[in-house]
């Protein structure tokens, strides 16, 4: 409703951290910023050679309706993929996170950006996100207090969890 616009803050499992990246429409616009996140189309438009030999880190931001297919064969050269949540209830980026981290072994930073609310934080971590860009004041406050709205166990495999002992194969407990 009438919330004051908060600063964006970057959060990971260990807590809040500085964000070296800036978002830009193109490398030209980014000036001499060392770490840049480009929209998918701009990123795909870069010459592979230019990208690889650049001394800056160039991440890519993917909207829910955009296909991650073209990124798959270049994953080992991508430092960061930001998956967007334009609204908290658009869940497509969860499946993409699962595919990128789980199936395709993406080892760079996977970031959730957009409408990140406290009640989705655990889902995001379990789907494979490393970092979350948070603006929602309730989410910021709860993350500050490390109150993640977690459950003591999960009924599905997911990142950051371990096989629960002595019970069904699909159950997990949070990793220590």
């Amino acid at each position: 409703m009438s919330e004051t616009q908060n600063e964006k803050q970057l959060w990971g499992r260990e807590g809040f951290r500085d964000d070296p990246y800036i978002e830009a429409e193109s490398l030209e616009v980014a000036g001499d910023a060392p770490d840049v996140i480009l929209p998918l189309a701009a990123w795909l438009g870069l010459d592979d050679e230019v990208r690889r030999t650049s001394n800056r880190r160039i991440g890519v931001s993917v909207a829910p309706g955009e296909d991650i297919g073209p990124l798959l064969e270049k994953l080992d050269t991508i430092p960061l993929i930001a998956l967007q949540f334009p609204a908290f209830n658009d869940g497509r980026s969860y499946s993409k996170a699962e595919l990128l981290k789980g199936r395709h072994g993406f080892s760079g930073e996977l970031r959730a950006v957009g409408d990140v609310l406290i009640d989705q934080v655990v889902f995001m971590l379990r789907a494979g996100f490393d970092t979350l860009q948070v603006t929602n004041p309730v989410a910021l406050e709860r993350l500050n207090a490390r109150d993640l709205h977690d459950t003591p166990g999960y009924y599905q495999p997911g990142r950051g969890s371990a096989q629960a002992n002595g019970t069904f194969s699909w159950r997990r407990t949070p990793a220590a």
């Binding site: 869940g91 969860y94 699962e98 655990v122 379990r126 789907a127 009924y155 599905q156 069904f168 699909w170």
Partner: peptide
């Protein structure tokens, strides 16, 4: 019952279309 458990607070499938 197996489906019930597996689908409970599923991280990937709680915000379907």
């Amino acid at each position: 019952e197996i489906l019930r458990q597996w689908s409970s607070l599923h991280p990937e499938f709680s915000y379907l279309p």
